[in-house]
Design a protein around this nucleic acid. Structure first.
Lengths: 341, 341
DNA sequence: CTGTTAGCGCATTCAT
DNA sequence: ATGAATGCGCTAACAG
């Protein structure tokens, strides 16, 4: 591996001249610049990032922390990560992935040991213990999701209250007097998982405004649990004709329970799923969705952090995305009365 | 951030003594070692990885390359990545994620610029252009999957030929005279995607041995395509009672097509899916699966690379995993004759 | 416009 | 068992 010294020698200039030619931080005469770049070409020189990092105190690498222990894998986090990776690469950074559990502090180690310049946090809780830790050390970070208290923090998130309002309005317009939300695990909800808590708030609020009855159920992130939850739900509310699900892992079970109850989608039951457009496309038949813009969220998460790293002490940016609703085949007007059991 | 020099001063020893105490590469008297570690505690010292990397010429970081452009996202790659991340962290390494397309060489840049010690390759083609590139530079790497020519290379892969043989034997034992394989995109197959090519070979071979008729169809990785493919398949082969699918993204559509043809699983059609156990658990009703040990594959991929990095010039390790079959509710004895259309 | 020089934080060789 | 000194590859003052 050639070093900057090899280039300097070959081009007949000093080391610093090469460095400045490469960084463009100092004017270089066209002639010497040409000789330098010629040497770079001939030797296939690549500036060593470690040397550069040590001298400049910036590694040009960031890490994304995805704590896996408490969640079943699904595609949404992958979409965040892939999208963040793309933006990171476009901006000339590298992306590290840490999956340490919340107790383990491998994700913090990366910052402590100076291997990354900043962090992106995923799976953020309303009271996330990582936030005070990072603040105490003054480490730069951005969140995908947001904490209850978030003044001065950078984050991107879906506006889940709004998302549920969108779903409720849509279903209320179709004439449904009752709307059930199938949320995620109750444990998550109790642990203060933002999407869960904020969605329920959105449901309650919008339901009151529209004068419909809100119902909330929790489901584990798997079809079996979705099946059981939905089966019980339909039994308990014989006239229920509208279901919103937050839990994309459970959708298969939800649909199956509806069918096994002798009901049809969308004729008897309107189903609206909160999920990423990409995932919705993978489901048959097509689902009406409140779209979670995962691609945007991952990209903006990386962008916010990098901007913070490069912009010096720029003010934090908070980005609450409003959800769009895409009506597909799985929802229709209320017609459930005839099926009362 | 305290440095090793701060520790040395505080403990009243030289810098090198601190370094050796930390690395354990030289005997240190109990007394001074105690003073050193006390200082480390008091100052909350963390050795700077960049300084260490520059001096030792090892970053203790590896990268995993997951080219996304040519594939729809699914959970299987996420499982590889998460699992590799876990093993990487356990071994004291960091994991970088590169998702650059095959033409883009961002993944190579990481090695060129000395930011990582080695690479894990995902989505390996039979003739993968990355391999000769890496070999030319002498960069250490390991593959999840394997190329046609692989002598001297380290990899972990599922033995897809064996996997299909397992599926065929199982279905043949149930009495099925015809077995259809629903493979992935034809474009992938033609591009030499290993799992696709090797699975077909396994099917053909095992079918011949067992005297059953093999049928191969390709499907895009989505339920709609799976639906159409299966619908056409059932129309073309009215007595078909056994389907094996490689394409877990299409399974929903496959199942729906079977149902809409007036057939039942497992009474009329036996369905065997080649997928990860974790994903199988997410499907309702439960699927008989040829299990792809994604967790093992990701872990071993990282292990092989790290072992290569640490073991000096150890011989390459090739790890072809045999698949297990888990019979669940979706497969049963051949009974399709009565349904001939 | 260009060169000289002093680190960045740590590992390691050579002394003692 | 310990210290002193050198250098990893590069950046960025400082000095022309």
């Amino acid at each position: 591996m050639p070093t900057i010294a090899d280039i300097a020698k070959r081009a007949g200039v000093s080391i610093s001249t090469v460095s400045y030619a490469l960084s463009g931080k100092r004017p270089i005469s066209a002639a010497t610049r040409a000789r330098i770049f010629a040497a770079v070409e001939e030797l296939d020189f690549r500036p060593n990032q470690v040397g550069r990092a040590l001298a400049s105190k910036r590694t040009n690498a960031i890490a994304i922390h995805y704590p896996t222990t408490d969640h079943v894998l699904s595609e949404m986090p992958l979409e965040f990560i892939i999208s963040a990776a793309g933006e990171t690469a476009r901006r000339g950074y590298s992306l590290l992935l840490s999956t340490s559990s919340s107790k383990d502090d491998d994700w913090l180690r990366l910052m402590h040991e100076g291997f990354v310049d900043g962090l992106i946090l995923m799976e953020v809780r309303l009271d996330d213990p990582r936030v005070p830790l990072l603040q105490r050390h003054g480490y730069p970070f951005a969140m995908i999701g947001h904490t209850r208290e978030h003044s001065g923090l950078s984050f991107v998130d879906l506006d889940f209250e709004n998302a549920l309002a969108v779903a409720v309005n849509y279903l209320a317009d179709l004439g449904h007097p009752q709307i059930a939300l199938i949320s995620r695990q109750q444990s998550l909800h109790e642990a203060g998982y933002g999407p869960s808590v904020r969605s329920e708030a959105g449901l309650q609020q919008a339901a009151e405004v529209r004068g419909v009855e809100p119902i909330v159920r929790f489901s584990e992130p798997d079809p079996m649990s979705g099946f059981e939850t939905t089966r019980d739900l339909l039994a308990e509310y014989p006239r229920l004709g509208a279901i919103v699900t937050l839990n994309s892992e459970a959708i298969g079970g939800v649909m199956r329970a509806v069918h096994e109850a002798g009901l049809r989608i969308p004729d008897d039951v309107s189903l609206v799923a909160t999920t990423s457009p990409r995932i919705a496309a993978l489901i048959a038949p097509p689902l009406t969705t409140v779209d979670i813009p995962t691609e945007t969220m991952g990209r903006v998460g990386a962008d916010l952090l990098i901007r913070r790293l490069e912009g010096g002490e720029a003010e934090p940016t908070q980005c609450l995305l409003r959800a769009g609703l895409t009506a597909r085949g799985s929802s229709g007007p209320y017609a459930r009365s005839s099926h009362a059991r």
